[in-house]
């Protein structure tokens, strides 16, 4: 392998890495945060909350991420482009950027999967916790926030870690809607130089490193959360 090719590949991969990290950060933060209220809605005794949450989770988990991505990018983009007031507005360049659609689709997808994880964790808590919190006179939002949520978080952590690795892998799909993240960058180099193996292996290395980093960060959080329980 000549150094010129390696330099080109490295340069493109680093460029792509920035986009991947940005996409991952946005979807990771908003997806994980959005999952909590959806999970509470999903187990709510009120059907006006429970049913929409159930359908949201079912649809997002029952269809391929790629379909969701296309639905937002091509489908929603199509509707927006047919709305003249938007088409000719100052906002149009932003509404046309593929990045926004990818961020939206992956955030909602992550929210649905994580909500299901949270639901399992919430339902796994002993009933006595709720009763004890109520008998202490805590208000509903107080016992949800102070008693239920921290304990459920501890139960949900291992699965959330896996889900965030899946999110990282799903960001590679953004390359199919013209975003040059790591996968897109590797594809670009592949088509420019016709070196299939080197470019794809380069991208694979980046993803392995990112997966290790995510898993490591979650294991740190896990250790921190489990500290009071160690003897």
């Amino acid at each position: 392998m000549d150094s010129g090719f390696i330099a080109l590949l490295a340069e493109k991969l680093v460029e792509g890495l920035k986009t991947t990290l940005l996409l991952m950060a946005i979807c990771g933060v908003f997806g994980n945060l959005l999952a909590v209220p959806i999970a509470f809605a999903r187990i709510s005794p009120r059907s006006s909350l429970r049913k929409p949450a159930y359908i949201f989770i079912l649809v997002l988990r029952g269809t391929p991420v790629l379909v969701q991505l296309y639905l937002f990018y091509y489908g929603l983009g199509e509707i927006l482009s047919r709305t003249p007031s938007l088409r000719h507005s100052m906002l149009w360049p932003y509404l046309r950027s593929a990045f926004g659609y990818a961020a939206l689709a992956l955030t909602l997808n992550t929210a649905a999967y994580c909500a299901e994880i949270w639901r399992g964790a919430l339902e796994g808590l002993p009933k006595g916790q709720v009763e004890a919190a109520k008998s202490l006179g805590l208000k509903p939002w107080q016992f949800r926030l102070l008693v239920i949520l921290p304990q459920a978080f501890r139960n949900a952590l291992p699965a959330l870690s896996g889900q965030n690795v899946l999110l990282l892998k799903a960001t590679s799909l953004a390359s199919t809607i013209t975003i040059f993240e790591v996968m897109g960058a590797a594809n670009l180099v592949r088509s420019q130089t016709f070196r299939v193996y080197e470019s794809l292996f380069g991208a694979a290395l980046v993803y392995v490193a990112l997966t290790v980093a995510i898993t490591f960060m979650f294991s740190l959080v896990e250790r921190w959360v489990n500290k009071p329980y160690r003897h």
């Binding site: 960001t171 590679s172 390359s175 594809n187 299939v196 993803y207 997966t211």
Partner: peptide, 18 residues
């Protein structure tokens, strides 16, 4: 380990082409 750490899309492209 490798399959779980690398995006499916990348693996599928790699295997499909090779």
């Amino acid at each position: 380990t490798i399959v779980r750490a690398v995006p499916e899309l990348l693996l599928i492209l790699l295997i499909y082409y090779t």
